[in-house]
Every structure is written in C-alpha cells, then in structure tokens.
Design a protein around this nucleic acid. Structure first.
Lengths: 187, 187
DNA sequence: CCGCGATGCGTACATATGTACATATCGCAG
DNA sequence: CTGCGATATGTACATATGTACGCATCGCGG
C-alpha cells in the first residue's frame, strides 16, 4: 500500500512550542487550542498529546521559552554597553526600538502575566525573568536605580503601545536621565 | 400549579457585569463562560443571552466598567491632593496601598490588555483610561512628568506584584521624587 | 540485519459551550 | 383593570474541544 509520506521530524517539539506562541499571539490563551496549534505547526493532532501531557503543560513550556528568550536578548543588549552613557542609550532602545517592545512581545507578556497568576510554575519563571533583567541593569547602575529603570521600561513600553501619540525617543531619554540622576537637558 | 419563586430583579444586568469581572479574575478570560457567570450572578442561563448579545459583548462591557471605575478612583485620589507634596504622596499610595494595586485589579488589567488587543472597542476604552490618568496627574505636574509618573505607576505596580521582595514605600517615594525633580534624600 | 523503543498518525468519544427559542410571568401605562 | 411590552426561565442542539488509544513506521544499537 502506498502510505502517505511520513515525516521524520527531529525538532517537531520545538516547532510546536514556537507555533504555540504564534497562536497565543494571534488568538490569546482563550482561543488557543490543540487543533489550531497543530495546524500552524503542521503536525497531526495526535502529536500534541504525545509531546505534551496537556495543553497547560504546553502553554507553560511555551511561556517559559518566551521568558528565557526575551531575558537573554535584554541581557545581551545591556552587556554590549561599555560606558554608562551607552547603557542609558541601550535602555532607551529597549523601550523605543522595534527589537523587544514589539506588539507581539507586549501581547505575549500580557497573556503570560494573566496566565501566570493561575500557574505557580510560571510565577517562578517571571521572577527569574525579572531577576535577570535587574542583574543586567545592575552591571551599570546602582540597585535602586536598576529597579526603577526596570519598572520604567515595563510601564513605558505598555503605555507606548496604547498611546495614540507615544513618547518619542527624546522624551524617553529625558526620563531615563532623571532616573539615573545624570544631568541632561529637560524638555 | 405552585410555580417556583420568580424574582423581580431590577439590577440584574449590573450584577451580571460584576459577576463577569469576578469570573475573569478567578478563571481568566480563557475560563470565562456563560454558565460560570450565571452561577456567580445567581441567574439562569437564559438571562445571559437576553441581556447581552454575545459573550464578547459582555466582556467588552465588563472591561469598560472596570476601566471607568478604576480611572474614577485614580482621579479622585489625586484630586484630593492640595499641595504638590500631597500629590507625590498620592502617587506613592496608588502604587503601594491596597486600594488600587490590589492583586485582583492587576490581574484584571492583564486580562484587559490582552483582550483589548483583539477588540477595537476596548482599545478606545484603554486610551480613555490612560488619558484620564494623565489628566489627573497634569493637575499637579508638567505634562512630561505626568507621562513619566503614569508609566512608572504601571510598571512599579506590576513589578511589585511579581517581586518576592517588593520595593517598599520609602523606595517608591525616592523614585517619584527623582521623576518629579523634587529634591529628596536618596537611600 | 534485526528487533525494539521512540515517534508519527488518524480517529473516536465524552463533555462543555455558545446561542436560539418557546413559553411563562411581571410591571405599568392607559 | 387590562393589555402589552419587557423580562425571566428552562431546555434543546449543533459544534468545538481535550484527551485517549490502536496501529503504522522509523532510527539505531547490538
């Protein structure tokens, strides 16, 4: 019998995880189903329950992947800064640039925050994420300042995604300057 | 025939809306169903489709109610401040107190942010909310400072809800002082 | 080369869900 | 008091969903 082409798929698991984030970004956790993910990942439905015990397990692992990826990029971007001024500029970039604060990432963050409230394992992941961010900032700034900057990055990113006239680069730079205590022209 | 007690329920609609927020807070939008809401509001299932055309309509209206309520409280708290120093303290309160930044409200905010990304009507609601907050802050601070404070309130509230050792009142006060430019002892 | 554990695949099934609808009851304007 | 429009209520039903399971097929160690 001519059986249909059967694939050998070494990284199918990873592809499912990526597809999960895609589906969550597009439909929200509320609209995320095994079947939708399977369609995006281009795998049969049976693969879902084979690779992941339950949908919650899948979501948990996908969100963990997201946090690790984003935290790594964050750290990387800050580690590339040599001087304090460069570090400030890196912070501005993280808020303003289309590298991390992309609509997709913001959206996924909201979904993660909401979901994590009901999955203890993810609370740990979020704490780890925040810890890494703070550690990266503390390589350039005092602990208190790092904390303030971390929160400000979060708040500004969110508000910029809602605002009809988002704060521009200059304004963000001025705010960072106030928090770091470095003198800078205020608008 | 002795018919079961049939209730006359003038504010049933409002009760359903409140129940919706309760259910969302407990189960997330993903776990919000007509039947769960009906159970919490103590109304029969049929009432759901009678008072609200669809589940999405219901969620949209409930989130609008949330935004209006929270924005009103925010404005009220800031309007009560007479001096600039009192305004700063009000901002600190909004972050640290158990009045607005309660776990429930934070959680509902995450759900709203995520949900609003897919419902255009709610984007307007969020913009209105942010506008009101900013207006309230601008009664005491310059526009740029108001923007920074608004974002910082958001970011600090979120991070405080995740952090194992949340920033204390003193630390929050110091951050606010930096943003407002008012001199204050730094820790 | 061969066997076996890992992986892939389709399908079945109980359940939960959104929504429609027929009917019953109530408040109140005239 | 009397309709009548608004509201209440229970139920039906098509559909989507999570998960289980049996079987097919493959990679690879011995």
């Amino acid at each position: 019998m001519p059986t249909i082409t059967r694939r050998h798929d070494p990284d199918r698991r990873a592809r499912i995880l990526r597809a999960t984030l895609d589906v969550v970004a597009e439909h929200g956790v509320a609209g995320t189903t095994h079947r939708r993910i399977a369609a995006v990942a281009d795998v049969p439905l049976g693969s879902m329950t084979y690779h992941f015990a339950s949908l919650d397990d899948l979501l948990t692992e996908a969100f963990t992947l997201l946090a690790d990826t984003v935290a790594a990029r964050f750290t990387e971007r800050l580690a590339a800064a040599g001087t304090r001024a460069e570090a400030c500029e890196a912070v501005v970039d993280l808020v303003v640039d289309d590298s991390w604060a992309t609509p997709r990432n913001l959206l996924l963050s909201y979904e993660l925050y909401a979901y994590a409230a009901r999955v203890p394992a993810l609370r740990g992941v979020m704490q780890g994420w925040m810890g890494k961010s703070r550690a990266a900032l503390e390589q350039h700034f005092a602990p208190g300042t790092a904390r303030a900057l971390d929160a400000m990055i979060e708040g500004l990113s969110i508000h910029r995604s809602v605002d009809l006239e988002p704060a521009g680069r200059a304004e963000v730079r001025a705010i960072v300057a106030r928090l770091t205590g470095d003198a800078l022209a205020l608008p």
